[in-house]
């Protein structure tokens, strides 16, 4: 018995070691540093909870948090709905569906730099694609990248375009899991298309939808590259998400301890949200086939 436990441990030890080294250790070290006034050159000075106290009194921190949540609210529901509709439209075995699946997924393989460049071409106020279209229709072009009211929506649109691939694939996989005889039973039960969608398809995609929402929420709360490259967080911090703020504090102002304190708060927030979503979605759910 003892021997079996030892040999089992030997098998999982490499993973546990790597896990501790790459995740647990940096987390604990980060927590430790967040109690210090620290810079990137290794100077450390114990300040206790001072970084956290300063953080919760920092209006820029609150502004960045607000921007982050606005982005998540703009992106997650829209992205979920669009990818669900795309998956429904492309869930067939035809050649054209396969081509469109590849096309919609292709944006996901691009790096954030390319995505931002593409959308810069589209959004630039004087010569961008949208500006040209609006001018052709006789409408004044919109300053997407300089109007504080438009930068956040512009970031959201860029992110949605970039992120279509994975959720669409998850929904497609979910749709493939629904047995064909379920639809046959529904047609014998006299269900029309809408009833079939709302009573059969949508409930069958429940788990996939929860997964997509949780993954997207966690991802969008950490939005960074697009904001840094498209608007640099501006104008006047109106499009600065929290991770960009953490980056600026750490690598611009060299206040490592303070930045890590903000990062810890973000981590706790994401964890709490994930747990809340998990609890909400599994509540009342019974054993299913």
């Amino acid at each position: 018995m003892m021997e079996r436990r030892v040999s089992g441990m030997v098998f999982v030890l490499p993973f546990i070691g790597l896990y501790c080294f790459l995740l647990i250790l940096p987390f604990v070290m980060g927590l430790w540093i967040s109690f210090h006034r620290a810079d990137l050159f290794g100077s450390r000075h114990w300040v206790g909870l001072d970084n956290y106290v300063r953080l919760f009194a920092d209006p820029v921190f609150y502004q960045a948090m607000g921007t982050t949540f606005t982005l998540a609210v703009l992106i997650v529901p829209a992205l979920t709905l669009i990818t669900l509709l795309l998956a429904l439209a492309l869930n067939r075995a035809s050649r054209s569906a396969a081509i469109f699946r590849g096309l919609f997924f292709s944006s996901s393989v691009l790096s954030v730099t390319i995505v931002t460049l593409i959308w810069r071409f589209v959004l630039t106020p004087d010569s961008g694609l949208i500006a040209k279209l609006l001018t052709a229709m006789g409408i004044e072009p919109l300053p997407f990248l300089s109007d504080p009211n438009l930068t956040v929506p512009a970031l959201a649109i860029t992110t949605i375009w970039w992120g279509l691939g994975l959720p669409m694939m998850l929904f497609l996989a979910g749709l493939q899991q629904i047995p064909q005889d379920m639809y046959e039973a529904a047609s014998l039960d006299g269900a029309n298309r809408w009833t079939t969608f709302f009573r059969i398809t949508l409930p069958s995609l429940r788990r996939t939808t929860i997964l997509v929402i949780m993954l997207q929420t966690a991802a969008q709360l950490q939005i960074f590259g697009q904001a840094q490259l498209l608007t640099q967080g501006g104008p006047s911090g109106s499009s600065r998400p929290i991770v960009l703020y953490i980056y600026e504090v750490a690598f611009g102002r060299w206040e490592l301890g303070y930045a890590i304190a903000a990062a810890e708060v973000l981590l706790l927030l994401i964890l709490a949200l994930m747990l809340a979503q998990y609890w909400l979605s599994t509540r009342g759910e019974e054993v299913q086939r």
Binding site: P179, D181, A185, L188, P203, S204, R289
Partner: peptide, 21 residues
């Protein structure tokens, strides 16, 4: 006619019960 309008009922081999109902 559509399957639902024929006045027939089918018991499927794999039952095809709706798992969420």
């Amino acid at each position: 006619l559509a399957p639902g309008g024929r006045g027939v009922a089918l018991v499927f081999q794999q039952y095809a019960l709706y798992p969420h109902m």
